[in-house]
């Protein structure tokens, strides 16, 4: 089991109020939700080095562009476990304000878990360069690949991470992604709103700010 950190600023961003300082009441709600979340979470992850051409994971244009120049890649998945879903469900019945804070806190936690996995992969590949994490659902990269990602990693058996008929990851606070490995330094420009599938509907952009993607 790994330890997870929660980036509170990120959790607050999901809760609207861009740039707003949380008041005392809000801070104590955040404290108590973070504590409950850390108690419920069982963070788990898997990753595996693959040959891109043999993987069957290249569908659509965007992932191809993303992995341009890479022969090898890492597939990874991570989850906070199903108990997190349960505490969020329970809070939705008894205290919706708490539920949205738990939900955002959990979203921030799964992101930092992924950062940790990426750091670990990075340490194993000190001489190479990694692209950022690209997930099914980004751009034209189909969500229907979730099952393939999970099967490659044996994720249902090893960490209890599955996909539903409509390709939602279950438990809900989970991520799958692919990272290209390159021998040469990668251009940094690729990340940002221009490649984001949500750019048209993004609530951050509407509010005149950005997420840190």
């Amino acid at each position: 089991m790994v330890e997870i950190k929660i980036n509170r600023e990120e959790a607050l961003r999901y809760l609207g109020g861009s740039g707003l300082e949380p008041d005392e009441k809000m801070l104590s709600l955040l404290d108590s939700c973070e504590k409950e979340l850390l108690g419920a979470a069982s963070p788990m992850f898997l990753y595996k080095r693959i040959d891109i051409n043999e993987s069957g994971l290249i569908l659509g244009e965007d992932v191809g562009n993303h992995l341009e120049g890479c022969k090898l890649a890492y597939v990874m998945c991570a989850t906070l476990g199903s108990a997190v879903d349960k505490i969020i469900r329970a809070a939705q019945v008894s205290d919706m304000a708490r539920a949205v804070v738990l939900d955002s806190t959990a979203s921030a936690a799964i992101e930092s878990l992924c950062d940790e996995v990426e750091a670990q992969i990075s340490r194993e590949n000190e001489c190479s360069f990694l692209t950022w994490r690209f997930s099914p659902g980004y751009g034209d990269y189909p969500l229907s690949l979730q099952e393939k990602f999970l099967a490659l990693l044996d994720a249902p058996r090893k960490i209890g991470l599955c996909s539903s008929d409509s390709f939602l990851l279950t438990p809900a606070k989970s991520v799958t992604a692919i990272l290209g490995v390159s021998e040469k330094p990668l251009e940094k420009k690729r990340r940002g709103c221009a490649v984001c599938a949500l750019s048209k509907t993004c609530k951050f952009r509407k509010a005149g700010t950005r997420c840190e993607f």
């Binding site: 809760l15 109020g17 707003l20 949380p22 809000m26 919706m96 304000a97 949205v100 804070v101």
Partner: peptide, 10 residues
């Protein structure tokens, strides 16, 4: 953007 979502809900 003057309030967080949980404050609206509360």
């Amino acid at each position: 953007g003057r309030l967080f979502l949980p404050q609206l809900i509360q």
